[in-house]
């Protein structure tokens, strides 16, 4: 079976930043969280997937098809929610919908009406009168109303309150009942993904640091806490990132069982959150 999204050796050069050989694969039926600090290359990657930017090398396949050669076909099967609203502010929700809908071959008016009702969107309001959360919901209603199989979201939760964010996560969980769909979800609010993501891809400074299942991360990664002497004797080997304070240290490790065997009860091993992973990996350059 073809992966729903496959990126191979994707490159994009800018003057002061570059995406370096990005590789990732998302299978049908899963949600992939795409995490990384601001400026890590998340939006650039998404723009390349949507062909809003020209790549300098590599390959992007969606539903097994090249995203540029089969651009229209592929885009018919993608729903997108971007970090800010790019709709015309001056017109009403109804007008905006009627401009967009005919572009999709498989537009489902019934589904759209249902979402509008569920989300409490008012069709007569101008786009500029909608709150940030409502704009996101409108984007989402459009994205879900043309039988899209892949949902691409660029920081959909940024700037939203926890209530709306949690609503969005519920909708995504519902959506994933259909095992033919996939979601690619970029965010720097990693707690969103603790709940729903199956895969985590972590990008930092234009490079993929990690792309694996969330379970793998939760089972194997550990947040090790112990006295400072340990780091000196250990020479920091195997530590992904270390934070020291006057009492001891905290470090992220990729194979917590090894550390457990090695140090026994001198250390405490905790489960890291995705935020810990992101923070410690980003600190690596500073502390290693």
């Amino acid at each position: 079976m073809e992966p729903i999204l496959e990126i191979k050796n994707l490159r994009k050069e800018f003057k002061d930043f570059s995406l370096k050989d990005i590789n990732l694969t998302l299978e049908k039926g899963f949600i992939m969280g795409f995490i990384g600090p601001n400026g890590a290359g998340k939006s650039t990657t998404i723009k390349l997937i949507l062909n809003l930017m020209n790549k300098d090398g590599g390959e992007i396949k969606i539903f097994g098809k090249d995203n540029i050669v089969y651009e229209r076909e592929v885009k018919n099967r993608i729903g997108f929610v971007l970090d800010e609203s790019h709709y015309y502010e001056e017109i009403t929700v109804q007008e905006m919908k009627s401009i967009i809908a005919p572009f999709y071959e498989r537009w489902d008016e019934g589904a759209f009406k249902k979402y509008v009702k569920d989300f409490g969107l008012s069709m007569d309001k101008k786009i500029k009168e909608l709150s940030k959360g409502m704009k996101m919901k409108f984007s989402l209603a459009i994205a879900l109303s043309h039988n899209a199989e892949l949902l691409i979201m660029d920081e959909p939760t940024s700037g939203l309150d926890p209530v709306v964010r949690s609503e969005l996560l519920d909708i995504l969980s519902d959506l994933m009942q259909d095992e033919n769909k996939g979601v690619f979800f970029s965010t720097h609010i990693t707690s969103d993904l603790d709940k729903i993501a199956d895969y985590i891809t972590f990008i930092n400074n234009g490079e993929i640091i990690l792309s694996t299942t969330k379970d793998d991360i939760m089972e194997n990664f550990g947040l090790v806490k112990g006295p400072k002497e340990l780091i000196r004797s250990n020479n920091s080997n195997g530590f992904i990132g270390i934070r020291e304070n006057q009492y001891g240290f905290e470090a992220l490790v990729q194979n917590k069982e090894e550390f457990r065997k090695l140090y026994g009860d001198k250390i405490v091993v905790e489960k890291p959150t995705l935020e810990d992973i992101m923070v410690y990996y980003t600190r690596r350059g500073i502390n290693a």
Partner: peptide, 18 residues
């Protein structure tokens, strides 16, 4: 000007439009 103001080139080019 309206296209530019709402950066809607991004939205339009994400739709299945040539």
């Amino acid at each position: 000007a309206y296209d530019d103001k709402s950066k809607s080139d991004i939205m339009l080019n994400s739709l299945p439009i040539k």
